[in-house]
C-alpha cells in the first residue's frame, strides 16, 4: 500500500469502517514504517478524540430528565 492509498483510507480506518481484515493490516503496516502518514494519522486521531470528548461534555440539566419523565407519565 502506498501513501496515496493509505491516506485515502485513513478516515475509514479511524472510524472503524474498514471491513476487511487484510485492508486494516495493510494500513497498519504502512503506518508502522511511513512517518509522514503516521504523523497525519496521529493528528487526525487526536482531533477526532478532542471532538468526541468535548462534544459529549455538555451538562444535561437535571430538570430535563424529570421533565421527560413527566411527559411520559402523561401519555
Amino acid at each position: 500500500m502506498d501513501c496515496k492509498e493509505a491516506l485515502e483510507k485513513l478516515y475509514l480506518y479511524l472510524d472503524h469502517e474498514i471491513l476487511s481484515e487484510s485492508e486494516r493490516q495493510q494500513i497498519e503496516g504502512h503506518l508502522q514504517w511511513c512517518w509522514r502518514c503516521q504523523q497525519v494519522y496521529q493528528l487526525e486521531n487526536n482531533l477526532q478524540n478532542l471532538i468526541r470528548l468535548n462534544g459529549r461534555n455538555d451538562e444535561v440539566p437535571p430538570s430535563f430528565f424529570s421533565k421527560i419523565k413527566n411527559v411520559i407519565a402523561q401519555f
Binding site: 462534544g55 455538555d58 440539566p61 430535563f64 430528565f65 421527560i68 411527559v71 411520559i72 401519555f75
Partner: peptide
C-alpha cells in the same frame, strides 16, 4: 436521553429549543 439532548443542542444551538426538540421527539417516538 443525555445523547439525545446533546445532539439536539448541537443541532438547535440553543438549550431551550434542544429541550423542546427532545420532548417532541419523545412524544412522537411513543
Amino acid at each position: 436521553l443525555a445523547s439525545l439532548f446533546r445532539t439536539a443542542l448541537r443541532m438547535t444551538r440553543n438549550r431551550e429549543d434542544a429541550e423542546d426538540l427532545v420532548q417532541e421527539t419523545v412524544t412522537k417516538a411513543f
